[in-house]
Amino acid sequence: MQQINFILSLADANLILSQRNAEWCGHGPVLEQDIAITNITLDLLGQARNFYQYAASLVNQSGNMPGNIATEDSLAYRRTEREFKNILLCELPKGDWAQTVLRQFFYSVFCKGLYTQLLQGQDAQLSAIAEKSLKEVLYHVRWSGEWVMRLGDGTAESNQRMKQALQFLWPYTGEMFMPAGFENNEIDLASIKKQWLSQVRSILEEATLQLPAGNIFMQSGGKKGIHTEHMGFLLAEMQYLQRMYPDANW
């Protein structure tokens, strides 16, 4: 059960961020960047699917849902808000372009560290998913990191917007490194945090932005199913079709 919850937390984070980023589809600042963010969104969705398929197979093996076969779709579309285990960072509104790229940067650098550890883990399936995902994540880090530098070290307005995004998002970064009890003991969140801080600090420096100082209160709860007020609206939109027409098909 613990392992299933861990895999679901990975799947949920990718799915929810994918749903958020998808709001840019057709609304990107320029055509080329519209395609770029949508490509990343599809990468996240693909990663979510891999994790959901694996979680569904484990759920079905466990026999905890007799007569009710779990599938990637049932896990994505039939669970309630309290059952979603994504970190809060992923469900926050997309905001402006600065907020979107900074959130992507924070999340992708975290995934880089996490997947690198999964890759070396005992679970062959997770290791395979991590290997495939890591190639995509490295590009997401590069793309979002360059945008953070571009806007932070850009015009007065872009710098101001990046500062606002940093101030808004920072309190949601701590949850990534807080254990929820379902991580397996191969995952060393403290060492992921150390790598994360070092990469984030160096990019923010390039972007002429200051790492928020002092003891800032960190929001948490997402991993335990306690979400922000934004989550319900996101799920309502995402799950609407399957809720309204259960088992609807193309």
Binding site: L31, E32, Q33, I35, A36, N39, R142, W143, E146
Partner: peptide, 20 residues
């Protein structure tokens, strides 16, 4: 062809637009 602010962005945009 595509629009980009500099060469780095042009290469990344090209990756996203023309090598999907």
């Amino acid at each position: 062809s595509l629009k980009a602010a500099d060469a780095t962005m042009a290469i990344e945009n090209a990756r996203d637009v023309y090598t999907r």
